[in-house]
Write a protein that binds this DNA or RNA. Structure first.
Lengths: 126, 126
DNA sequence: CGGGATCCCCAACGATACTG
DNA sequence: CAGTATCGTTGGGGATCCCG
């Protein structure tokens, strides 16, 4: 079970795959929106309330992108006042796993990283 | 082994963990540099040659950030001409696993995503 | 309620030139 | 060889106002 050099999957086609996914989820809000929709169908306003700090504009843009990528489905009801609900598609749900792996890494290593940063900073400008 | 709602790890502290890691690896080159250094100690120029398209400036910045985070170690030899070698630290190596998971997802889903994008585009401006 | 349109800022990025 | 310095472009993101 050699774990070495499976990073070829990352470098793969010159990094196009990784570049693609990071362009997709590497921004400020996308993964938060996906995680917030995990297991729950939700309206625009509720989504916004559950993601502190996100503006209407950025939430709109983010769910549009996700809808275009087929990761989120949007359902508009012909009512007054209007009602729109969002939920993860089957494909969108498959993103949760890998994303959680990354989040686990982040939570686990964050203390070490911050310590390394502090050491680097104090050393590189005494 | 319920897999539902483990996305709480992503939303966690209002998304600070995910935000942190995406600020770290979400840029254009970081993951490519890490993947290229996987299992191999390497000089600056060799690193640059193996990453098509990266400029000196961006490679320098990227390895500096990685060094500051403790994910890459930098060794300069007091020679003429100068020689500097980079390699992943133990902590840097632990990033490969989660990153590969994401790359696998990207490679696997990319066709579906591109198809969804095409359908969306043709539908939203006939 | 769920957006769209507009304006503005700034950090990421690329290209080029220079240096110990 | 392995950088640093400088310039210009680009697009992510925030704020605000308007609309069906």
């Amino acid at each position: 079970m050699s774990k070495y050099r499976n990073s070829c999957l990352i470098r793969g086609d010159g990094g196009r795959a990784i570049r693609g996914i990071l362009d997709r989820i590497g921004d400020k809000w996308t993964l938060l929106v996906v995680a917030t929709l995990d297991g729950e169908r939700m309206r625009f306003t509720e989504l916004q309330q559950r993601i502190p700090g996100i503006s209407q504009r950025m939430l709109t843009r983010t769910v549009r992108h996700l809808e275009r990528d087929g990761l989120v489905s949007r359902t508009a009801y012909a009512e007054v006042p209007p009602r729109v609900e969002y939920e993860l598609t089957a494909m969108g749900r498959t993103l949760i796993g890998p994303a959680v792996k990354l989040a686990e890494w982040a939570v686990d290593k964050n203390p070490d990283i911050e310590q390394s940063q502090a050491a680097y900073d104090s050393e590189h400008r005494g």
